[in-house]
Amino acid sequence: MRRTQVQIRLNGEDIDVLCEPRQTLLELLRDELNLTGTKEGCSNGNCGACNVMFNGRLVNSCCVLAPEVDGGEVTTIEGVAQGDHLHPLQQTFLSEAALQCGICTPGFIVAAKALLDREPDADADRIRHWLAGNLCRCTGYDKIVKAVLAAEAQSREAATR
């Protein structure tokens, strides 16, 4: 089995890793790099559980081939917290009880962070539209939207302090 080398800037660190060309980015992260925060839901682009940032854009890692990211930059859920310091979204998902089983949560947080990094004041409608590619079977979405709004408020407060 031929393996190819892939160089990536992953969560701010430059790494080299071997993969099979047929592997997806999701498989590279979970099976080769042991970064199991990124989840597999559908493996066909519909659920968003596998969301990561690739070269500045939100993508479904199950629809990206591993060798495609060679020379690129990838950020996963593992790159969202700063050491022990949770990102506001991670804090508000907890405080607003925006998860139950939790399998969708990393994807939602990565996706919501991509929105807030561009539009820190996105309203509820915009949040729902942005997160339409993420599915949750447990929460009914309301608490997720509230958590994102709460994270926006928290970030605004931190900025004025």
Partner: peptide, 8 residues
């Protein structure tokens, strides 16, 4: 698709 699809 959604945002994740549109970026690709």
């Amino acid at each position: 698709g959604g945002i994740q699809i549109q970026g690709r």
